[in-house]
Design a protein around this nucleic acid. Structure first.
Length: 732
DNA sequence: AGCACGCCGACT
DNA sequence: GTCGGCGTGCTC
C-alpha cells in the first residue's frame, strides 16, 4: 500500500529524522520548512518538516500521522534549510538539535511566527506641553519625554526601548507620545566619510569581485578602517535590494558595530546576540525573514538567521576562536557563513588584521581574493615592538624597571598606557616557601589562583573556591607566598607605583554584569583613565585614541603550550594588542610597544617582531604542512570523560578498534591515541581523546556516519560522556 | 533526551 | 508486603 510520508526533524539526540503520515487534506500544507506537532513515543513534540511529502511503501510499519501544522508557509527560505541539513551532516550532529540551535526559543516551542515590528516613537504637541508641566517627582516621564523632545526614538525590530514599559504605556495613553512609521530606507541615511587612498584601492579591489558568490580576505592592520569598507559594501548591497549579515566574534563588539550600521542605515538594522532576550531575538529573526530588516549584526548564532535574499556576508575578526562553538553542536560560524554565502550567491568578506592560517592558505592558493589594507588611516605606522629580557631585568610584582620607566614617560607626556596580561586574579599559584607545596584544586589537575581582594582561592577551570589556608596544609609552615602575577596584582603594583594616576582593570571578574565595560570604555575615551590593565578583552576591536604605550607583562605562556595553535594565537594576540597603540593623529607621544619575556631569543617571537604576523604565518603554515596539521590536514576529535580514567580509555580503545576495522590498512586516515587530555582531570572527571587525522577531508568524513552508529551501540558509550568535534580548534 | 518497563533492597 | 534504585530499550 502506498503512503504519503514526510520526514520531520525532532529535538532529540538521535542522529536521524522520523517519518510521519500526511493526512490527505494536509498534503498541500506540508512543504519543507514548516513546523508541525507530532506524536513521539508518549509525548507530543514540535518538529520541522525537512522533506517534501513523498509516496512510499508502508513496509508494515505503523506510521503515526502529523497532528497539527503550525505554519501557513515555511519559516525560512530553502537555502536556510539546506544550511541546517548540511551542518548536521558535516558536524555529525542530530538534525533536530541543529534545527533547535537555528531557531529562536519561542519558535522552537511552537509559538506563532509573529514578531513585533520595528517602531518609532515621537513626541506629540501635547507631550511637549506636558513636559513643561510635569511635577518634579515624575522624573521617569520627564526622562522619556525629554529624550523624545531631542529626537524620535528609533527602535529596531525586537529591540527594547530602554524605558520602563509602564512609563511608556502611560505616555502613549496620554497621547504625549505616538507611534510613527519606522521606515527601512535603502541606502545611506547619514553621509559616508571620505575614504583614504588606501581604502579606495581596497574597496575597488573588493568591488571587482565577479557578481555572485566570491570570498575576499580583507587583511587590514588595526586602525586601517575596515569597518568603513564594510559599510560601503553594505550600502551597495542594500541599493541592489539584498540583505547583509555582519558577524562579530563576541557580544561586547556588537553595540559599537551595530550602532555604526544603524547610524548609516537607520531602521534597516537589527542585532542578534546572546545578551538579548529570547523574545527580542525572535523578533529580529522574524524581521529578517520578512525583510523588515536588511542588515543583521550578530554573533555566532546569527549565521542561522533566515535571510530572504542575502547579498553580502561580513565576518569581522575572522580569526577569532569565539566563532567556534565549544560545546554541544560544535559548529564554526565563519565556515558556515561562507557556505551560506555560496548558496545565496552572495559576496563574502573575511576581515582581520591577523587572519587565521586557514584563511591565509586559501588566499595563497587563490581560492579567496586577497585584499590588503596596510596603511593606517592616521598614516602612522604601527609602533615597533621591543623585548625586555626577564633574565636580565629583575621584576617586582611582575614589572621590570624599563617597563615602569616607560609608563612614567608616557604618563608625563599625557599619554595612556595599557598593560596586557592574559591572567585574571592576583597570582596563579600560592606556594609554601618551606616545602614547595602549592594550592591545588580538588576537582581539577590545576592550581588554584589567588584572588586577594576577594580573599579566595579560585579554580579557573571549574569555578571551585576556597579560603586560602593560614599555614601550609602539608608542613605547617607559616610562609605562603603568591607566585606569578595576574591582572589584580599588576593593578595593585601600578596603583602603588603611580599614586595620583587612575588605574583601571579590565577582566571578566571586574566587568561582570551590566554595561560596566561600555561605561569604563567611555571613561577611557574621555581620558579619565590613564593606565589600563587587562586580559585579552582589551585586545579586541576597541579603539583607544590616546593610547601611546602597550606593555605585555609576559608573553611566554603560549611559547611552552602543548597546543599546536598556541603560537598562531600568540602572534594574533600580540599583534592585536600592539595595534591598540598610537592609532589616532592626536596621539601625544610616539607610541611604543614593550614585551617582557624570558625567551628573547625565541625564533618565532623574533620573526613576529622583526618581520610581522604575515611572516610568522608563512613559517607556521610550512610547519603545519610538514606535520599534516590544519590547514594542510584535517582533524576530527573524539573526546570522552568519565569518573575514572580507565572507563574513558576503554571506550576510546573500543572506538579506535571499530575505526581500524572500518578503514583498510592503507587508508589515509591516521588514528592518534587514545591519550589522556592535557589536563587529565577537570571538574572531577577524567578526560581522554582520540584524534583522527587525514590529508584529505573525503576519506575522513566518509568514515564518520557508520563509525558513530557503531559507537552509539557500544555498551561503554552509555556510561560516560563523549562527543565528536569536527575541525576542533582546541585539543581539550 | 525523555519515558517506559523491569527486576532487586530498606521502609510504612 | 510496597516504594524506588537505575539498567536497557524505544521513539516514525
Amino acid at each position: 500500500m502506498a503512503l504519503d510520508l514526510v520526514a520531520v526533524a525532532l529535538p532529540t539526540p538521535l542522529r536521524r529524522c522520523f517519518d510521519y503520515l500526511v493526512p490527505p487534506e494536509l498534503r498541500a500544507c506540508l512543504p519543507p520548512g514548516v513546523r508541525v506537532e507530532v506524536p513521539f513515543g508518549r509525548r507530543q513534540l514540535i518538529g520541522l518538516v525537512v522533506s517534501a511529502p513523498r509516496q512510499a511503501e508502508g513496509g508494515g510499519y505503523q506510521y503515526k500521522p502529523v497532528s497539527r501544522v503550525l505554519d501557513p508557509a515555511p519559516l525560512a527560505p530553502p537555502d536556510w534549510l539546506k544550511l541546517v541539513l548540511w551542518a548536521a551532516e558535516y558536524y555529525q550532529y542530530p538534525v533536530g538539535e541543529v534545527v533547535a540551535a537555528a531557531l529562536p526559543a519561542p519558535l522552537r516551542e511552537g509559538r506563532p511566527a509573529l514578531g513585533r515590528q520595528a517602531r518609532r516613537l515621537g513626541l506629540t504637541g501635547a507631550g511637549r506641553q506636558a513636559l513643561a508641566l510635569l511635577p518634579a517627582r515624575a522624573h521617569r516621564q520627564r526622562a522619556l519625554l525629554s529624550a523624545l523632545a531631542a529626537a524620535d526614538l528609533q527602535l529596531l525590530a525586537g529591540e527594547a526601548s530602554g524605558f520602563d514599559a509602564a512609563v511608556l504605556r502611560k505616555a502613549l495613553e496620554q497621547q504625549w507620545v505616538e507611534e510613527r512609521d519606522a521606515v527601512a530606507e535603502p541606502g545611506a541615511r547619514t553621509a559616508a566619510p571620505p575614504l583614504s587612498a588606501a581604502q579606495q584601492q581596497a574597496l575597488a579591489a573588493l568591488q571587482s569581485a565577479p557578481p555572485g558568490f566570491s570570498v575576499s580576505l580583507l587583511e587590514g592592520v588595526t586602525g586601517s578602517g575596515k569597518t568603513e569598507l564594510y559599510l560601503r559594501l553594505a550600502e551597495q548591497t542594500l541599493l541592489a535590494g539584498r540583505q547583509v549579515l555582519v558577524l562579530v566574534p563576541e557580544i561586547g563588539l556588537t553595540p559599537q558595530l551595530s550602532a555604526r550600521f544603524a547610524e548609516r542605515f537607520g531602521a534597516a538594522v537589527a542585532s542578534f546576540h546572546s545578551g538579548m532576550t529570547e523574545v527580542e531575538r525572535n523578533d529580529a529573526w522574524l524581521a529578517v525573514a520578512a525583510r523588515r530588516v536588511q542588515v543583521l549584526v550578530g554573533t555566532r548564532s546569527a549565521v542561522f538567521a533566515p535571510f530572504a535574499d542575502l547579498g553580502l556576508v561580513v565576518v569581522d575578526e575572522e580569526h577569532d576562536a569565539s566563532y567556534k562553538q565549544q560545546e554541544g553542536f560544535r559548529y564554526h560560524a565563519r565556515d558556515l557563513a561562507l557556505l551560506r554565502a555560496k548558496e545565496c550567491a552572495a559576496m563574502a568578506v573575511l576581515g582581520s588584521a591577523t587572519p587565521a592560517l586557514e584563511s591565509l592558505a586559501h588566499a595563497r592558493s587563490g581560492r579567496y581574493r586577497h585584499v590588503r589594507l596596510e596603511q593606517r588611516i592616521s598614516g602612522r605606522a604601527p609602533p615597533p615592538a621591543q623585548l625586555i629580557d626577564l633574565n636580565v631585568y629583575p621584576t617586582r610584582h611582575g614589572l621590570t624597571e624599563p617597563l615602569l620607566a616607560a609608563v612614567s614617560r608616557h604618563l608625563e607626556a599625557g599619554g595612556q598606557c595599557l598593560l596586557f596580561i592574559n591572567r585574571r586574579g592576583y597570582a596563579p599559584t600560592l606556594l609554601c616557601e618551606v616545602c614547595h607545596w602549592t594550592a591545588p584544586c580538588r576537582h581539577c589537575d590545576a592550581r588554584m589562583t589567588l584572588h586577594r581582594a576577594r580573599g579566595r582561592l579560585v579554580c579557573h577551570h571549574c569555578g571551585h573556591e576556597e579560603l586560602p589556608p593560614r599555614v601550609c596544609p602539608s608542613c605547617g609552615g607559616a610562609r605562603l607566598l603568591p607566585v606569578g602575577e595576574g591582572t589584580e596584582r599588576i593593578e595593585d603594583a601600578l596603583r602603588n607605583h603611580f599614586p595620583g594616576h587612575r588605574v583601571e582593570r579590565f577582566d571578566a571578574e571586574r566587568l561582570r554584569g551590566g554595561d560596566k565595560l561600555e561605561r569604563l570604555l567611555d571613561e577611557v575615551r574621555a581620558r579619565k583613565v590613564e593606565i589600563l590593565v587587562g586580559t585579552q578583552m582589551l585586545a579586541k576591536g576597541h579603539d583607544f585614541p590616546a593610547l601611546s604605550l602597550v606593555g605585555v607583562v609576559n608573553a611566554d605562556q603560549a611559547l611552552f603550550s602543548a597546543d599546536f595553535r598556541a603560537v598562531e594565537r600568540l602572534g594574533q594576540l600580540l599583534t592585536q594588542v600592539a595595534g591598540r597603540a598610537g592609532r589616532a593623529e592626536q596621539s601625544p607621544h610616539p607610541a611604543e610597544v614593550l614585551i617582557q619575556t624570558r625567551e628573547p631569543q625565541n625564533p618565532q617571537l623574533r620573526l613576529l617582531l622583526g618581520a610581522g604576523y604575515g611572516a610568522l604565518a608563512e613559517r607556521l603554515l610550512a610547519e603545519r604542512a610538514e606535520a599534516g596539521l590544519p590547514p594542510s590536514g584535517h582533524l576530527v576529535l573524539l573526546r570522552a570523560e568519565a569518573p575514572h580514567m580507565t572507563e574513558a580509555q576503554v571506550f576510546l580503545r573500543g572506538a579506535r578498534d571499530l575505526a581500524l576495522a572500518m578503514l583498510d590498512g592503507a587508508s589515509e586516515v591516521q588514528l592518534l591515541g587514545p591519550a589522556p587530555a592535557p589536563m587529565e582531570r577537570r571538574e572531577g572527571r577524567y578526560r581522554a581523546q582520540l584524534l583522527l587525522q587525514a590529508s584529505r577531508r573525503a576519506p575522513l568524513h566518509r568514515l564518520l556516519p557508520g563509525w558513530l552508529d557503531q559507537l552509539e551501540a557500544l555498551p561503554a558509550a552509555r556510561r560516560l560522556r563523549w562527543s565528536l568535534d569536527v575541525d576542533p580548534i582546541d585539543l581539550f
